[in-house]
Amino acid sequence: MKTAVSNRIKKAKSQIAFEAFGYCIITLVSLFCIFPLVLIVSGSLTENSILMREGYKLWPAEFSTSAYKQLFEYPEGIIAAYSNTIVITIVGTALGLWFITMTGYVLQRKDFRYRGKISFLIYFPTIFSGGLVPWYMMLSKYLHFTNSWWARVFPLLMTPFLIILMRTFISTSVPGEIIESAKIDGAGDFKIYYAIVLPVIGPALATVGLFLALAYWNDWYNTSLFITKKSMYSLQYYLYDMLNSARFAQEMGIYTGDIQLPTESIKMAMVVVVTGPIIFLYPFVQRYFVTGITVGSVKG
C-alpha cells in the first residue's frame, strides 16, 4: 500500500519534471525553426531599398506593404498556380493512395508467391537509376508528357518507401487469418481489399497520404522539366521561377531589357504567399494520427 502511493507520487514528480523540460525544449526548437521565417515575413514587409541597404531585421526597419500590393496587382498567375496545385495534389494523392494500398495489400498476402521478389524489385530503384536523360526521354518523347498534367501527376505517384510502409502496416493491422477466413467464405481478392483491409488502415492512409500530398505540393522540379505554359505552373515552381530568373541573369551577364526582375521584398512576399497557408493544413491532417503505424523490411 505504502509503496504504491509513493510510486504514484514518484511518477507524478518525474512526469512533471519531464513535462517542464519538454515544454522548454520544444519551445526552443520551435523558436529555432521559426526564426528564419520571421526574417522572411519581416523582409516582405520592409521597403525594398531599406531591405537592401540594412539587411533583414526581426521587425521591419521601415514598414511597407508595397511588395504585396505589387504581387496582387495581377493575381491571375498566383491564383492559377494555387488552384492547379490543389487539384493536382488531391488527384495525385488519391491515385497514389489507391495504387499504393493495392500494392501493399498484394505484397503482404502470404499466399502470393512472388511477394518477396516484387518487393525487392520495388526497392531496387532506390539505389539504381538510369539517370536524368533516359528518364526525361521516356516521359517526354514516348509518353508525351510535355505540357501535360500527367507530367506533374505521374512521377510522384509512388515511392518504394511508401509502398513498403503501407505493406507493413497492412500486415500488422490485418491478421492473415481474417483474410483467409474471408477467402473461405468466398470473398474475392479485390473485395477483401476494399471491404476488409481499407476500412481499418485509416492512420496509414493519413501518414502516406500526407507524404504524398507534401511531395505534390512542394514539387517544382517536374514543372521545370516538362511544363512551359505559365497557366500550368505549380505553385512552388512559380516561386522558383521568380527567384531564379534574377540569379540567372546575374550569373550569365544576360541583358534583360525591359523585363523587370522581382525585387528582394517581392521575392519574400511571394514566399509568404506560397508557404503561409500551409500552416493551416498540418493541424488538419494531425487529427487522423489516432493509432500508430509501424514499418518493416523489404523482404515481406
Partner: peptide, 12 residues
Amino acid sequence: TETKTDAFQAGK
C-alpha cells in the same frame, strides 16, 4: 544573393 542591378536601383 543580390544582383548588381537590384542593388544599384535600390541605391545600395
